[in-house]
Design a protein around this nucleic acid. Structure first.
Lengths: 145, 145
DNA sequence: CTAAAAGTTCAAGTGAGCTTGAAGTCAAGA
DNA sequence: TCTTGACTTCAAGCTCACTTGAACTTTTAG
């Protein structure tokens, strides 16, 4: 296979639809060169970048947040393994926070809903400023008397 | 406070916007009686129902899925603590699955992106049919050579 | 050489989960 | 009584993350 990949090659290798790749490029998350015809030509490192996007989404980051992370990579040279691991190391903490929230939720399911307390004092759900926990809408707190 | 709650009372106690409460009622997730004026009057147990909705959303269920769960509650009587805990008990497993996925992701971050393998064989990310993991879009697999 | 497959742009559509606005009614306090 | 403020419905709008369609060009296989 050639050095430069077509959009369908990248799509097949990444599992990301070509339309999504164009969308990501429009958002500045990935970039491509162009063949004389105007067709996109992706360099191989884009695959790692896409992998990162996919991972990050599943962790729960928005594309905007992902863009901020990707902007930390060096622009002048191909990112090294070290660059990537620096980016991702800060995420372990975020994942851990999300896991902790899920465990609070799990406890809350039985302790709060199951038993009927639903009180702010006893409920472990209160964590208003937890940015990582922003999985979907819904209130940030729960109040009863 | 009265037995029956106005929409703004419910909103304040639940942390859920009045517009969202109307929306939930439209979707059949909660219900209300009406005052002679046409204004909504909520019975207190609606608070627990809303709590359940909020929990479920943060776990990652869609409103449709939540509706299915709520439909399992007895229609003829106020749900007991037992009814609620039966509903929520099945969710512990779902939460555990999600936690497991997050831990796979965490491992993947350093092992796959950090090191550069990105291979399907070695990558722990492959879990195509994991319904709980459907947090946002993105591909269900990752393929490289 | 030709037909089909693959690529392009740009605008509009989708679905989830709400929010906002318009236009009007009802309730509570001075 | 008057005037806020809370409430109603209904339709339209919004954000996110894409997808789809139209109209067109380029590449590739036979």
């Amino acid at each position: 296979m050639a050095q430069l990949l077509t959009i369908s090659e990248v799509s097949k290798r990444s599992g990301v639809a070509a339309s999504a790749l164009r969308f990501y490029e429009g958002r500045g998350l990935i970039s491509s060169e162009r063949a004389g015809s105007g067709h996109r030509r992706f360099r191989r490192p884009v695959l790692r970048r896409i992998a990162f996007i996919v991972f990050a989404q599943r962790i729960g980051l928005s594309l905007d947040e992902i863009g901020v992370e990707l902007a930390k990579l060096p622009a002048d040279r191909a990112p090294s393994a070290k660059d990537w691991s620096q980016l991702s190391s800060s995420w372990s903490a975020r994942i851990d926070e999300r896991i902790a929230e899920l465990e609070r939720l799990k406890a809350g399911l039985t302790e709060c809903i199951g038993c009927g307390c639903l009180s702010l004092g006893r409920c472990k759900l209160t964590n208003p400023d937890d940015r990582v926990s922003k999985f979907g809408p819904g209130p940030r707190f729960w109040v009863t008397d």
